[in-house]
């Protein structure tokens, strides 16, 4: 059902990226796609986060540990 390339290689579990950091409220959702793209391309996550301006560890832990489960769950909704 799902190609392996669609999965996040950086850890795996939570539904969809939170819009804001749970702790400080920084809109981390805005950097998620670029973060994933660059990390998948083989860049060092720490370096990518620095360059994206994510300074605090509260925001960093969310991006680093996030898993896009929504891509797997989305096929199991009620039929309309």
């Amino acid at each position: 059902m799902q190609e392996d390339s669609d999965r996040s290689p950086i850890g795996d579990e939570s539904m969809i990226i939170p819009i804001r950091c749970f702790t400080c409220g920084y809109p981390i959702g805005a950097v998620w796609e670029e973060f994933v793209k660059r990390v998948r391309a083989g860049e060092d996550p720490a370096k990518v986060l620095d360059e994206l301006g994510i300074k605090r560890y509260c925001c960093r832990r969310i991006l680093i540990s996030h898993v896009e489960l929504v891509r797997e769950v989305m096929y199991f909704t009620k039929k309309s």
Partner: peptide
């Protein structure tokens, strides 16, 4: 919206 690239939801084929 200040940021244009915040993912809100992902839709599977057929969803609206």
């Amino acid at each position: 919206p200040v940021y244009k690239n915040i993912p809100i939801v992902t839709l599977a084929p057929g969803q609206r």
